[in-house]
């Protein structure tokens, strides 16, 4: 059995509301193997974001253990690349400077950071935009820049919270393929939160289905489609069956 990048055991998060304990996340156990693309789907507001924030180190769990690289409950901040629905690009910095941000914070010399960011932009076809300011970018382009910034900070472990949620359907399609391209380049371990079933199937090796508040895992589904993935796979008979199964699960919550 391969060692996981991330292992979560019995993770729960409670908060007290009117002197009664309420669970937002309830006894979640999960794992992500090295280089594995894992998605979490669940209804909106079910506590997916809380779960991701805990894994990113922004919030503390009430109970449960988190292992990253087999190490238990370490300081989680900085251990993952964290990406949200909003691109969160600094408006006063150019695309290049935004992509460099993670390296700047790691105190890597400006020259070297610039070099690496340039290479990154070139590799993924954004060189032409290097000197643009974020306000001049389309939503999809801004999110590409945000992904490259995330990757340059940490390309081994990515936490993504509905990163394409704000994009239109067409942009989203090309972004999904682009993400897979980036992911395969770095063999990153990814935890991808979405409420789009087809997106989850297209991207993932494995999908966890969460129930709504408290978030708890109700099903785990393996997606055995060949890589590299293509959009046509979504029309396969087997894929459609999985899609319907997931849809039923989510609808009956």
């Amino acid at each position: 059995m391969t060692t996981p990048k991330l292992e979560v055991k019995n993770l729960s998060k409670t908060f007290s509301l009117n002197s009664s304990l309420t669970y937002t996340v309830s006894s979640i156990s999960m794992r992500i193997n090295y280089g594995e693309f894992v998605s979490i789907i669940g209804p909106s507001g079910c506590g997916k974001t809380t779960l991701l924030n805990i894994l990113a180190g922004l919030e503390k769990q009430t109970t449960g253990t988190i292992y990253i690289d087999k190490q238990k409950n370490q300081k989680l901040l900085g251990k993952s690349g964290y990406m949200l629905q909003k691109p969160l690009l600094l408006p006063w910095k150019t695309v290049l400077e935004n992509v460099m941000l993670g390296l700047t914070l790691k105190r890597i010399s400006e020259k070297k950071a610039k070099q690496e960011a340039c290479n990154m932009l070139k590799k993924f076809g954004l060189s032409d935009y290097a000197n643009y300011y974020p306000h001049a970018l389309s939503g999809g382009m801004a999110q590409r820049v945000a992904l490259l910034r995330t990757i340059l900070f940490n390309n081994q472990f990515l936490l993504m919270d509905e990163p394409f949620g704000a994009l239109d359907a067409l942009t989203r399609l090309s972004m999904q393929m682009w993400l897979l391209d980036v992911w395969q380049t770095y063999k990153s371990s990814v935890l991808f939160v979405t409420h789009d079933i087809r997106e989850a199937i297209l991207l993932s090796d494995r999908i966890y289905v969460l129930s709504s508040s408290p978030a708890t895992i109700i099903k785990e589904v393996n997606i055995n489609l060949p890589r590299p993935r293509k959009h046509e796979f979504l029309k396969d008979k087997k894929t459609v069956e999985i899609e319907q199964l997931l849809e039923q699960l989510l609808l009956n919550l």
Partner: peptide
Amino acid sequence: IDKEFINLFKTMNAS
């Protein structure tokens, strides 16, 4: 300042 920006910096271990 958007709280999410602050969080982003935190996850990047910014001083």
